[in-house]
Design a protein around this nucleic acid. Structure first.
Lengths: 285, 285
DNA sequence: GTCAATTCGGAATTTATATTCCAAATTTAT
DNA sequence: ATAAATTTGGAATATAAATTCCGAATTGAC
């Protein structure tokens, strides 16, 4: 009995509060437990990646001591304790699958809430991940390529269409000449024919890549039109024909991809292009 | 025999070389293996932290496929493959927050970078704020109102149009009957006339509220059609005529509003409605 | 110094996870 | 169109890891 639920209280939900509890409150711990706790706070990465056995050895304690330590703080076991350390590294909040199953387990009190937080979580993590992954040089070059264009052709179908719609709105506001390749009357291919190398194109396409988008992008490529793409993987057929491409790893939830990160990127691009042109006008080389 | 040591060569020792090998050499992989590889490159964190089973589910493949993928690259098994992804996270010590402040400090060196991080920051804060502000009951009620509707009318112009476009896409995918009120030929008012109290409407409008959106919303309200709105303040003319409304405080950057939070909300709503209907069918009261 | 309470180590057990294998399905070659 | 080769899904198995349990050691109280 002595080992279980020492505190009764809820366990710290993140690394920082765990650390605070150890450092601050001077929770009285016996020798080995203190030793293990000290090791954990000093080597959080080890806890995140190691196994109970490997960590135990590194900290010179027994695996069972680690389990006891976890219990001491109110966690269900070592594995539960360990997730706190994993979440710390994974910049996103608890993975959606885990969170979802947790909610499902904890008695479907509010399935709506799960949806809500699922989608917000996915959006948040997409944005954080993308901000980390994007290379500033790429962004700068994209602005140069698109900024120098006479007319910017916008290619997107289906899921990505709304992004293009938003881009078109921003472009209009910013006075950037553009042409959507998304008509409902099937004249897109003809529209594309008008493009010249002095123009540029921006294509957006995600995983089940819409066949038409590809066709249009290929046609433009064949005509020597510079192409900037936003897509979701190096396997995308867009990648190989693009002058430059951005990889957007949108998290999905319930099978629906967030578009939040792509939205932020397209907005940044459009304002970037406007800025670029403003500068070119003021200081024409 | 076929499964083992496909390449014979030594496996990539770190994430970058693995990625290079996949992207560059065009290693020809069969469908499922390619699918798994794409998932791995897009969600490296998941690989690092997940289990074969959880990753397999997220990537829509079998656990055995992951083992095969690992073999394909010359690794001993999935676990070996996984360590590459773990190492990648281990090496990348600086936390997200730290990195951001670094960027801010070394600021104004690249004005493009400022744009980029500005928009991403705005998106991020919008999402966090909204997730905090939203009331779960409201969300639930919105789903009930819209879920019970015969046809859902979607009203949005200008800035918000792209959101509606995305909603329309999602609704189509989910088999939810809807009608966009956004035609380019000026028959919107007539479209709205067809709405009945057994339908419902979803209106989205932000600060310089588009006059047409308001007209349409008022007409629907007058006809007794329940109205759910997404808008940006209690002073919005939409608020007073809505059955229910959400306040979305989108942060703006350089005068352009992020739509990330609204995007997340609309996606959550659409899937919520689909779920609601699925339940109603199974358990008709 | 003795006894009771607590803590600890380590083996035994349970649980989770990776891996293998085979039949079915798909693709490719003829 | 048919056969051979490859790929795949999923159950069965093997492996590894976490957890429990109990006797031994340590600590603290009197």
């Amino acid at each position: 009995m002595a080992d279980l639920d020492e505190t009764g209280a809820v366990p710290p939900a993140d690394f920082e509060s765990l650390k605070a509890q150890v450092v601050g409150n001077h929770v009285k711990l016996p020798k080995r437990l203190k030793q293990a706790a000290a090791y954990a706070l000093e080597n959080p990465d080890e806890i995140a990646f190691g196994t109970a056995a490997s960590i135990a050895q590194a900290a010179s304690v027994q695996p069972s001591t680690l389990v006891r330590l976890a219990h001491q703080f109110g966690y269900e076991g070592f594995s539960h304790f360990q997730t706190i350390f994993k979440e710390r590294l994974r910049l996103r909040t608890p993975s959606y699958e885990e969170r979802l199953t947790q909610i499902e387990k904890s008695g479907d009190a509010a399935p709506e809430a799960a949806l809500l937080h699922g989608f917000f979580g996915a959006a948040r993590s997409s944005i954080v991940k993308m901000e980390e992954a994007i290379r500033e040089e790429d962004f700068k070059r994209a602005i140069e390529v698109l900024g120098a264009a006479d007319t910017i052709y916008l290619i997107a179908k289906r899921r990505s269409y709304s992004l293009t719609a938003h881009l078109a709105y921003a472009f209009s506001k910013l006075g950037i000449r553009h042409q959507m390749v998304a008509s409902t009357n099937g004249v897109d291919m003809e529209t594309v024919q008008f493009a010249r190398p002095s123009d540029a194109a921006l294509a957006i396409s995600f995983s089940p890549y819409a066949a038409e988008s590809l066709e249009h992008a290929r046609a433009l490529h064949a005509q020597g039109v510079p192409l900037v793409s936003i897509t979701d993987s190096a396997f995308s057929p867009l990648a190989s024909i693009s002058t430059l491409w951005f990889e957007v790893a949108e998290a999905d939830f319930a099978g629906f991809r967030s578009l939040s990160a792509s939205m932020a990127l397209t907005m940044a691009l459009s304002v970037g292009i406007a800025e670029y042109r403003r500068h070119q006008q003021n200081e024409p080389e």
